[in-house]
């Protein structure tokens, strides 16, 4: 069980985000607080355009919040950096660099020693099944393989926090299922601290310890649902998990909340 009384690893505290001038622009996120404990997998779900991706961008430090603060271990998180790695929906691989160069990018920028770079590169290529594509360019790979490279690039940083912004949203259904299962297995093994944005209720129920449901825009936290973590049904395939009564119950509850928001829009 995750202890929620200690200082969270990542905390988004009272985040409000206006695009354009405050009051007359667009209010994307309104006073949202999300915290993720060390080793916890938290999913944020909500209808399209509810500001969940804004929450991620602000959480990563890529944009400043209009109000509120981002804390890591209780201290201001500051500029984006290697403590927080991000996996983007559209992969965001550097097109002029090979798979190996992409994965090593962050290690080079943060001046990790060369032999350590090479060691982590090989490790990630192995884990993600990319060894034979080491010298390929992103444009030569399928979407699923590109997203594996992006995940490898994020994990190679050995980040304290992994931010994933609808990472499987641009993939076909089969590839998505395989990657969901791999992320599930990896996060169990490695106890990663993850903040994961998705619009898929199934994905949220399958992967996370806690699901945060957001309202339609302006995004507010509607409800938090705690899910069992170390249960057997979560460690297998997603379609097996989806047959478990607990899964069905959680999905029904969360989908009901999301549906309310979609219908009210």
């Amino acid at each position: 069980m995750i202890d929620t009384t200690v200082t969270p690893k990542l905390e988004l505290r009272n985040i409000t985000k206006w695009y354009g001038p405050e009051g007359t622009g667009v209010l994307a996120v309104d006073d949202c607080s999300v915290s993720v404990q060390k080793g916890e997998f938290v999913c944020v779900v909500g209808p399209s355009g509810c500001g969940k991706s804004t929450l991620m961008t602000v959480g990563a430090g890529l944009e400043d919040a209009t109000r509120g603060e981002i804390l890591i271990d209780g201290k201001p998180a500051g500029k984006p950096g290697p403590r927080r790695s991000v996996v983007f929906q559209k992969f965001a691989l550097f097109p002029s660099e090979t798979v190996a160069e992409n994965i090593k990018f962050g290690l080079q920028m943060t001046k990790v020693p060369r032999d350590e770079q090479e060691r982590r590169l090989r490790e990630q290529l192995e884990i993600m099944g990319l060894t034979q594509f080491r010298d390929s360019y992103p444009s030569q790979l399928s979407g699923g393989m590109q997203q594996r490279v992006a995940i490898a690039r994020a994990l190679a940083m050995q980040p304290e926090i992994l931010l994933m912004d609808e990472p499987f949203g641009a993939l076909d259904a089969q590839t998505r299922t395989i990657l969901q299962e791999e992320v599930q297995r990896l996060s169990h093994q490695m106890q990663y601290t993850v903040l994961f944005i998705t619009h898929s209720v199934e994905e949220a129920v399958y992967l996370s310890d806690r699901v945060i449901v957001m309202s339609r825009r302006p995004g507010r936290i509607k409800k938090e649902i705690r899910l069992p973590r170390d249960v057997v049904w979560k460690q297998g395939d997603i379609e097996q998990a989806a047959e478990h009564p607990d899964f069905i119950e959680a999905r029904r509850e969360i989908w009901g909340l999301v549906r309310e928001e979609i219908m009210a829009a």
Partner: peptide, 24 residues
Amino acid sequence: ILIQASRVFGARQHQTLRRVVVPV
């Protein structure tokens, strides 16, 4: 998004320019 990714992985402005922006 490439510029964002570059920042996330610790690149400074001039590094992003040289390694990501100019090649693209």
